[in-house]
Simulated scan of single mutants.
Amino acid sequence: MSATMSKPTRGQRFRCVLVGVVPPVVMLGVAVSLLAAWRGELPDPMASHWGTGGVDGTSSVAGAIVTVVVVCVLAGVVSTVASLAMSHPRQVRASVVLINFLVVVIAGLIPAVAAGQRGVADVHDVATPVVPILMTLGIAAVVAAGSWVLVPQWATAVGGPVGAVPAEDLASGERFYWQRAVGNSVVADAFYAATAVALVVITALTGLWWLLVVPAVIIVGAVLMGTVRVRIDRTALTVRGALPWPRQEIAMADIVRAEVITVHALRDTGGYGRRLAVRGEAKGAWGFVVRSGEAVLVTRVDGRRDFVVVDDAATAAGLINAVLAQRLPG
């Protein structure tokens, strides 16, 4: 039995749509205005792609404007549909944040790259625009972070369990401390390594060495999430990576139930690390995923659900349920 979602108010839906539509509209207006204003100063065609030998791809100014219009309109439409059609607040937030990030990157890069070509006679003299690209990515990250904050979240009704709900024997007032550490599986390590190596090879072939920042970020992420530590006592469930951040603490007073479920990392969440499950028993829940396997899924009083893949999940869930049972009247 899956949890039944409470419907968001019209105001919350409107805010979701607004947050998802404003960035594409702003990017559409800014990018098209700049390209139109610079049209007489830009080479036509202008440089649009760089390789090891410099410029190896061009695009007409009109084509660049059309690309911006199509990307922004499509982003606005998809974001609106996601905001109105999706019922789970976390899925709406993730969708809007991702769309806003991509629309700023794609629609923002075109005028950012064009800016350095104003007054240039030969496009093949244009160097790789590393700084404009990095600045665009930074702006996109800021917009994504702002979207994350602004997309409203609504309480979801607490439905029935989707997995086993064990309970450990625990005397009233008995103190305990349960802790486990779980590391990446071979599959997860291979996933990280293959992705990083592929990006390094692409960087070497293209000569765009600034792209090394991407595998560097992947390696940092692998270190941060390479090991997850789970701790449970009478006060809270605490989960953190190998370093103090990322860290999540859920007070026992905020939990209504703990279950044992099975998570398939790639199939259910699309990868490893701090993930949102898009299918499976944990669908709609955020979790810490370092490998596939059994996980503890906790449901909060406001309907939100969180999970962590960990060894001996049954004991962990059982201890949480034992604490919760002792707080029930009678």
Rank of each mutant, 00 (worst) to 15 (best):
V298R: 09
R15K: 14
A141M: 02
V77W: 08
V104S: 02
V308H: 09
R275F: 02
E249C: 11
S48Q: 07
A31L: 00
L150K: 03
V21C: 08
V263Y: 00
T128R: 05
D302L: 14
L205D: 03
F14S: 13
R274S: 09
P24S: 10
D189N: 13
D189S: 11
L102H: 13
A47N: 02
V113Q: 08
V30Y: 10
L324Q: 11
E168I: 03
S59K: 13
G116V: 03
G183A: 15
A222Q: 05
P23W: 01
V182N: 13
G108R: 12
L98H: 10
A75K: 12
L297P: 10
V17I: 06
G287M: 06
T136I: 05
F191T: 12
I133A: 13
P166H: 04
T238C: 04
T235F: 06
E41H: 10
A167S: 10
V310D: 07
D312Q: 11
P23S: 01
H124G: 04
P24M: 08
V78K: 03
A62P: 06
V143I: 15
K283Q: 09
P166S: 09
P246W: 11
V151R: 10
G138A: 07
A188L: 06
G76W: 06
W209S: 05
R118V: 11
Q12M: 15
I139W: 07
A322K: 11
P166N: 05
D306Q: 11
S60V: 10
A295Q: 01
A64E: 06
V25S: 12
G284K: 12
W50L: 03
D306E: 11
V81Y: 06
V61W: 03
L208N: 14
A62H: 09
D169F: 00
A285C: 05
V151P: 04
S147W: 09
V149Y: 01
G53T: 02
F101M: 13
S292M: 00
V113F: 15
P43T: 04
I232A: 06
G221C: 05
H88C: 07
A198K: 02
A194E: 02
V55R: 02
A313K: 09
M135G: 14
A62C: 02
L211Y: 01
L324N: 09
G29R: 00
N321A: 05
I320Q: 06
G108F: 08
L84G: 09
V289H: 01
R180I: 05
G160D: 15
Q153M: 15
